[in-house]
Design a protein around this nucleic acid. Structure first.
Lengths: 209, 209
DNA sequence: GTCTATAGGATGATAGAC
DNA sequence: GTCTATCATCCTATAGAC
């Protein structure tokens, strides 16, 4: 990540930082998403995030104040991305597919975004924590509200859609694809629960061994 | 928890322990289930478990070797209980309800078992950890296998059933019931996703505030 | 803006008495 | 079987130089 960005010049009157703070910020948030996905909120350390982003640990803390703030920003960023993808699917002119199908594909496409779904899932099991719990509930309900009021689903459809999403998240969280080759039941379940994008899951499994 | 169990007698030639090790063990496992449900595997401390069980922290470690072993035993115990409840539902002579409905009620009845579903859920997001991940995958697939091969569901039915279970777990994990009174969407979702046992959820919410 | 050094606090695990 | 005392480690956060 040693890029061609402006570097401080010796003697320059106003040293230019290595990178815009906003770019570093995004870099750190992306790294944090991946680390939190792997280790969970408590299990992840600010040092692991820093190393993944190529900066120092105190810098991460300095930029976000606390680890909790960092995680909250990660959740917000992930949710924002999810909403963007969903809104695109809703507005999609492709009429050959049902809206439900388009949203399903949109959800599964988020697998490409490293750690996004799993970071959210880690937030979803921490309802006990005051701030994280509040953010998780609000985020989850934002998605439900979108399904109900923007996508036009009824309560049952929205609930079923979310249920399948949570199953997918669980299959990612357990790294079920790791056992793909060792059990016929696993193959069957994975192929039933996510016929599309099975290849992505299996690649994730291989990559991070 | 100072009970009427046998206490060591002064001068007795063979001091009787305060409680059978097996009983203490079960006591600690139950306490641990609750604590892990609240804080997650990494977030929970052996000291919190010890306090919840009314024993000393080193004793918890002594009895289970490591915190990881303790969590693995908790997962196994929770899974065993779940399987017992499911097998009972399958064998249930009540023919007025469909098997699927009976299993659904059985699953929801596990809400009464403090922390059981949520402890399992915490295991399900830690696939990255070698031992916990392996246990989580095996446990999850045991349930799937039971649905497929003992309950006679087809792949689609089993997948849908599990999906609804994971949604329920997520609603518990986020403590969504805490927001029951503040949002019509929350009420609608909770009533759609779990018409039965809504009262249990709401009570949990009140109790632990 | 970004780093090095480090303080301060918790936590899992061990030693050893009773 | 169970406890008290304690060690060693790790980790968030702060201080302060450049």
């Amino acid at each position: 990540v040693t890029s061609s960005l402006p570097i401080a010049v010796d003697g320059g009157p106003d040293p230019i930082p290595r990178m815009r703070a906003s770019a570093r910020r995004e870099l750190i948030l992306a790294a944090a998403t991946s680390v939190f996905a792997d280790r969970g909120y408590v299990g992840a350390t600010t040092d692991q995030v820093a190393k993944a982003a190529g900066v120092s640990q105190p810098y991460v803390v300095r930029m976000f104040g606390t680890k909790e703030n960092l995680f909250l920003e990660v959740l917000q960023r992930d949710l924002d991305r999810l909403l963007v993808v969903f809104r695109a699917a809703i507005a999609d002119p492709t009429e050959s597919m049902s809206l439900e199908h388009r949203l399903g594909l949109a959800y599964v496409s988020l697998l490409d975004d490293d750690g996004l779904l799993l970071s959210l899932m880690h937030g979803f099991v921490l309802g006990r924590d005051a701030r994280i719990g509040a953010a998780a509930r609000a985020g989850f309900m934002t998605v439900y509200g979108m399904l109900r009021h923007e996508a036009g689903m009824d309560a049952q459809q929205a609930s079923t859609f979310l249920a399948n999403g949570m199953l997918l998240n669980t299959l990612i969280g357990t790294r079920m694809a790791d056992d793909y080759s060792t059990s016929a039941d696993v193959r069957e379940l994975l192929e039933t629960a996510m016929p599309t994008k099975l290849d992505v899951l299996l690649n994730m499994s291989k990559r991070s061994r």
